[in-house]
Design a binder for these strands. Sequence first.
DNA 1: AGCACGCCGACT
DNA 2: GTCGGCGTGCTC
Length: 673
Amino acid sequence: MMTIQQPDGGAGTHPGIARLALDVYLPHLDRFFDYSIPDRLAQQVQLGCRVRARIAGRMANGFVVGLPARAEVDKLSPLDRVISPEPVLLAQQVPLLRAVADHYAGTFADVMRLAVPPRHAATEAAEQNPWPAPDARDVPGGGLTEVDDGRRFLDAVGQSRPVRAHWCALPRWRSDESGLDDWTRGFVQAVGAAVGAGHGALVIVPDVDRVRRMRDVLRAVLGPGCVAELHSELGPAARYRNYLAVSRGQARVLVGTRGASYAPVHDLGVICLWDDGDDLLSEPRAPYPHARDVAALRATQESCALLFGSYARTAEMQAWVSTGWLVPLGLAPARTRRLAPPVRAAVDSDIDLQRDPMAAAARVPKEAFETIRTGLLSGPVLVQVPRAGYLVALSCQRCRTPVRCPTCGGPVGADRLGAGQRRLTCRWCGRSLNNWSCPVCGSRELRAPVVGSQRTAEELGRAFPSFRLVSSSAQKVVDQVGTTPALVVATPGAEPRPEAGYSAAVLLDAGLMLTRADLRAAEESYRRWLTVVSLVRSGDHGGTVSVVGPAEERTVQALVRLDPAGFAERELSDRQAAGFPPAVRMVAVEADEKTLADFRSVVEWPSDAQELGPVPIADSTPGSTEQLWRLMVRIDRTMGGELIVAARRALSIRSARKRPGAVRVRVDPIELF
DNA sequence: AGCACGCCGACT
DNA sequence: GTCGGCGTGCTC
């Protein structure tokens, strides 16, 4: 190796160099910058510490990501100050933040802001509480030990092997005194295996409620006080305190919401992520990363085990399973059916024909009515009704097939032209559809969207006047119900947790849920339904579930069969055929009309990319007056990287040229409509 | 030739 | 937002 003579500074000391990641959100300045370290700061500068420096004509905060021997350029500006010597952006996080930024066509600074919580000086100065080391003594049974290959997976985690799996958890209420969900058992088993091998562990869940539940289970098993939590409801001090416990290597087990995916748990043995289909795991701030992808990137980079778990399986998980990147864990449907509550389909078109006047008055098929009546004899009964007021997709009147654009396969909406006239246009490419006819059954009639489940709930309450009626929805969520019989009506996601499981559940208006205006409507409905099933006692403890809707529909069928893997396979192959994510990589570009035109004049998409639109869209950000337009671009998944690089390059060029107007780029947007 | 000014691009 | 490099064009 060649030795390069460094110019000697005369006194024999060289000014140190600090390589910084700065809070600069301009895409064309998305890289590290070197600064000289003035003598007065030399003692404080640490790798990973928070600093301030002048860049691009203003001061910016940032972190030290390197202390190189030589700078990339000759003339260096000096660091302005060291905000704190505490290392908070650790070396292991740097490639992760870079990879996430690159995957989402975003900047390092954008992701850095999501990863490191704001500093809380008093907390940093305070004496650190002792964090006992975790001790996996009494790991509960059930969970992963009950499914095929589950034990092998746990053994591999215990041997520090970077195994990866998707686990379909058993959807039923576990009727033992512990009250633990099956999935929390499986997760604590995986964490226990990693901890037993001397590693740290990270558990990501969609919301704070589940953070607390998972935290309590982990503490009960691994010892009190050894588990840290990270989520937005903590407040600045607790949030920073817990982050420091992790970054200082004190807390070895962390459970948190999506932001915790980046937390610098030392020597990770396993990452567990629950319910990737929950849209709370998708970050609403730029560059809109999904915790599922962050976890996947991180597990690869840090060579740790990865466990995804959910009741239903998303098409994204299925795509990874189908390539062998993830091992599928679970039970064959026949075995699941023996352990879970039985699910039966009741057809809602029979309502008007039925004899039972009470059932008819409540607008519920007789079988579902009987499910409720019988269930109320032994405990609370859950009735899930679709949320009122969501957009309904246009579908065929006869066979309910959703209307899709014949050119690009995108979703179709109806624009009112006045005088009762309406025009069908594609929401992606903007083309008008003339003389639509259903490609499946040939019908020319469109289904008129109907809503009105809330009324059904009220009528149900009147049909069972002697029972307590509990109503839970997004406006007023009821957390828990007891063991006494009660009729519990809830919208998806607002189901109260039963103390000892529901004795029965009824899923109303399945057809309505399936026609929601989103290409993921079937997958999302299936996920919501299995969540309800998971709250119901198993068949041998008297639990039953009725789904009211089109019994022949394949999502309803997959529910009756309790076959999430089979459903996911079908869903993925449908998306492959239709050209939807995850079979393709999709990029949505949103801006006002002029800005979007400017972006398009700059961007050079790969030749295989297909541009759809632009089309005007309803503005989701309140307060803005400008009409937003959206361009969709898609490409085969294998060329997804080139698509993202092209978008990213265009953003850089626009920011370097100081072009006015904001452009929002989303890679694989979570809502597809 | 030498300097002032202004534009444009880079920003350590 | 600010700085500096470079080209233009004016002046000595």
